[in-house]
C-alpha cells in the first residue's frame, strides 16, 4: 500500500493567475509580472482553512460487499448533485459515478464496483488544464472551477478513468442543486460532495451505500491515523486503479 502521507508536504499546486485576485486580495503569494494585466500567482498553502496538513478525504470501496444489481450510490449522487442520465442522450449526458460490471478474463471471477473521479494526488486533469480551472484542493479533492473553465475538454482527454463529463446542452433548473451548480459548455465530475464534506458531512454515495446495508463505501480522512478508513487501509490489502501511472488516488478498492 502506498503511504498517503509521503508526498503530502509537497507544495500546494494551486497555481493560477488572475488579475483580480492579485489586485484585490494581495494574499501571501508569489507574484510575477508577465505582461500588463497578466500575473502569475501561487497561493501560499498555509492560508487554507482546510489545510492539507490536517486532512485528505478519501473513499475505500470494498468490492466484495458491492452488489452487482445495486445502483443506489449512483441514484444518490444523481439526486444530490442534479445530473440525470436519460435514455435518448446516454452518450452526452453527464455521469459523475457509474457502476461497472467486471469479469476477470483469466479466472472468470465476476465483480461489480462504482467508479467516479479518483481524486488523484497527482491529477493529470489538473496538469493539462490551460486555465487552472481544474484544480486540487489542499484536502485532496479535485474540482473544476466552472467560473474559469473554457470548455476545451483537454482534461477529459487526460483523465485515465473517464471520470469527467462535458455538459452538452442547457441544464434545466430542475437539474441544478444549491450545492452543485451545473451549466452548459463546461466540464464537471464527482466533487466528493464537497459542499457536504465542508460542513462536516459525508458524500451521498457513501451514505446511500450504508443505508442499503452493503456498507461497501467507507468515507474518511486518510491523514488521520485513527480514522476507520486509515485503520482498514493499514490492516487489509487494497489497491488503486491504474496503479502503473503512480497517481496515488484518494479512492481505494479493497478485495480487488
Amino acid at each position: 500500500m502506498k503511504n498517503f502521507t509521503s508526498k503530502h508536504s509537497k507544495k500546494n499546486n494551486q497555481a493560477t493567475i488572475t488579475r483580480r485576485n492579485f489586485l484585490n486580495t494581495g494574499m501571501a503569494a508569489a507574484t510575477f509580472s508577465l505582461a500588463t494585466g497578466v500575473t502569475l500567482m501561487a497561493y501560499a498553502s498555509n492560508n487554507d482553512k482546510v489545510s492539507g496538513k490536517t486532512s485528505r478525504w478519501g473513499l475505500l470501496i470494498d468490492v466484495n460487499k458491492c452488489k452487482s444489481d445495486c445502483n443506489d450510490c449512483v441514484k444518490a449522487c444523481s439526486n444530490e448533485n442534479g445530473w440525470e442520465l436519460s435514455e435518448e442522450n446516454s452518450k452526452t449526458d453527464a455521469q459523475w459515478i457509474r457502476k461497472i460490471d467486471l469479469k476477470e478474463m483469466a479466472s472468470g471471477r465476476e465483480i461489480s464496483l462504482p467508479l467516479m473521479c479518483q481524486h488523484c494526488e497527482s491529477p493529470p486533469c489538473v496538469d493539462v488544464c490551460p486555465t487552472g480551472a481544474s484544480f486540487k484542493r489542499s484536502d485532496g479533492i479535485v474540482l473544476v472551477d466552472k467560473h474559469i473553465c473554457i470548455g476545451c475538454r483537454y482534461c477529459m482527454m487526460a483523465c485515465p478513468f473517464k471520470a469527467r463529463s462535458f455538459i452538452h446542452e442547457k441544464v434545466p433548473e430542475s437539474q441544478k442543486k444549491s450545492g452543485s451548480p451545473r451549466g452548459k459548455g463546461v466540464v464537471e465530475s464527482c466533487t466528493m460532495c464537497v459542499h457536504l464534506v465542508d460542513e462536516g458531512g459525508t458524500p451521498a454515495c457513501a451514505i446511500a451505500c450504508t443505508q442499503t446495508g452493503n456498507e461497501a463505501i467507507l468515507f474518511g480522512d486518510l491523514y488521520d491515523p485513527n480514522s476507520e478508513i486509515s485503520i482498514r487501509l493499514a490492516t487489509y490489502q487494497s489497491s488503486a486503479l491504474r496503479d502503473d501511472l503512480q497517481l496515488n488516488p484518494s479512492i481505494r478498492y479493497q478485495n480487488f
Partner: peptide, 24 residues
C-alpha cells in the same frame, strides 16, 4: 460584485464556507 467574487473563490478553492456572502 467584489464580495461575491472574493467569497466564491474562498469557498470553492479554499473550502471556507463560513462566508457572509454566499450566492445561495
Amino acid at each position: 460584485p467584489k464580495l461575491l467574487l472574493h467569497d466564491r473563490d474562498k469557498a470553492l478553492r479554499l473550502g471556507d464556507r463560513e462566508i457572509g456572502n454566499s450566492l445561495k
